[in-house]
């Protein structure tokens, strides 16, 4: 699936988008997989309360299922307007 990063999450991880081959069943499991990969992921995901997640372009929670999901995005709280 495609994993997207925005704002400081993108800067910390170093890419805007990557394709991840994962067996994770939930967003939280995907986060754990990514954190175990490299320090830059561990740093970006250190405090989940500072992050928001969207699954297939809908805001959701970290316990959301990844069943059939094509796209997951991680980003800080939004600052529009």
């Amino acid at each position: 699936m495609d994993v997207l990063y925005f704002a400081w999450v993108r800067e910390r991880i170093g890419v805007p988008k990557e394709t991840v081959d994962t067996g994770a069943k939930t967003v939280a499991e995907l986060v754990e997989e990514l954190k175990a990969r490299e320090e830059r992921y561990a740093a970006a995901f250190a405090d989940l309360s500072a992050l928001r997640v969207a699954v297939d372009q809908e805001l959701t929670d970290f316990d959301a299922s990844l069943d059939g999901v094509r796209e997951v995005a991680f980003f800080p709280p939004m600052t529009g307007g």
């Binding site: 704002a7 939004m78 529009g80 307007g81």
Partner: peptide, 19 residues
């Protein structure tokens, strides 16, 4: 749209940049 639309602002000054 301030907190539910996916926009992020970054402020750039001579001293650097901050989200």
């Amino acid at each position: 749209l301030k907190s539910r639309a996916p926009f992020w602002k970054k402020e750039i000054t001579r001293d650097g940049a901050d989200w």
